[in-house]
């Protein structure tokens, strides 16, 4: 099967600030792809280039077989978009908003089915201006799905949610998997990327610093940590050659005749990998 999204050496600067410095990835059809990174990493820039909102400086981008910069209305029939901030007609109800947007598409999904999918049954006939933040975000998702798109872009769909609202949103996004949608999701929550995505790309400073299945990420990175204490100080070594490092460490300690207190060897969790990857940026 051909890729739903293919991005090669994508670059973009804003007045000299390099927001994207050569980003490449592929998203297969039906895959849920997570773009994970801290604020300012370039997630929105990437997604909005793929949606056709922003122009790129360099690189090639193909989304559902077309270049988003020049793609037409037929292409827009096939994509669904959740922008980083919500927006609707506040003076219309949930159902009226969905019905208005449904009219733009050739094969819209039935409104009531959508309302159920995003869990807004009780708010069906409520004016949008009186919805809570989480409910608005779910309506956003409903509007992105109204045209029954093949590919859905979700830019930070759960930012600002409380844990309960986030769990519900995860369920909804999970149910899109069963519908066979291809999804590009951005988030700065590691657990969200890990939980929802088939593959995750970690974006930092406009570059992809790791890419793979959530469990692969832990092995492709400086993944083993050796902890011990020396002179009351905690020491942490990250290494990809734990056997060798450990051997050197213990040989040295034996020769010097001291104990490696609190010695511990463990595999870094994805969380630690992510923190390590993104920590460097702040320095």
């Amino acid at each position: 099967m051909s890729s739903a999204v293919s991005v090669h050496e994508l670059r973009k600067s804003y007045n000299g600030l390099q927001a994207l410095r050569g980003v490449s990835f592929e998203i297969a059809q039906g895959e849920i792809f997570g773009l994970l990174g801290p604020n300012g990493a370039g997630k929105t820039t990437t997604v909005e280039i793929l949606e056709g909102y922003r122009e790129r400086d360099e690189g090639s981008v193909t989304v559902l077989g077309e270049d988003p910069a020049t793609a037409g209305l037929d292409w827009r029939q096939r994509i669904g978009v959740v922008l980083q901030s919500s927006s609707f007609y506040d003076s219309l109800t949930v159902a009226e908003n969905l019905a208005l947007f449904a009219g733009y598409y050739m094969r819209p999904r039935p409104i009531d089915e959508l309302i159920e999918l995003v869990g807004l049954e009780e708010k069906r006939d409520t004016l949008v201006r009186s919805l809570s933040g989480g409910q608005r975000r779910r309506l956003d998702l409903g509007l992105a799905l109204v045209g029954d798109p093949e590919l859905v872009f979700l830019d930070e769909p759960t930012t600002g949610f409380d844990p309960e609202a986030r769990r519900r949103a995860w369920e909804t996004i999970g149910s899109l998997r069963e519908l066979g949608k291809t999804i590009l999701l951005t988030t700065h929550y590691l657990d969200e990327a890990e939980r929802l995505s088939d593959r995750v790309a970690v974006l930092r400073d406009g570059q992809i610093v790791a890419l793979g299945h959530p469990t692969e990420l832990t092995s492709t990175l400086p993944a083993t940590e050796i902890h011990y204490r020396r002179n009351g100080q905690d020491v942490v070594l990250q290494t990809e050659e734990p056997t060798k490092v450990l051997h050197e460490l213990t040989t040295e300690a034996l020769a010097a005749g001291h104990e490696l207190e609190g010695l511990e060897v463990r595999r870094a969790s994805l969380e630690e990998v992510y923190l390590a990857l993104t920590r460097e940026e702040r320095e």
């Binding site: 827009r76 901030s85 919500s86 598409y105």
Partner: peptide, 14 residues
């Protein structure tokens, strides 16, 4: 400013 026009640009409405 509230993003409705931006959203409309992502739809196939000419």
């Amino acid at each position: 400013e509230n993003g409705v026009l931006k959203r409309l640009r992502a739809t196939p409405l000419p």
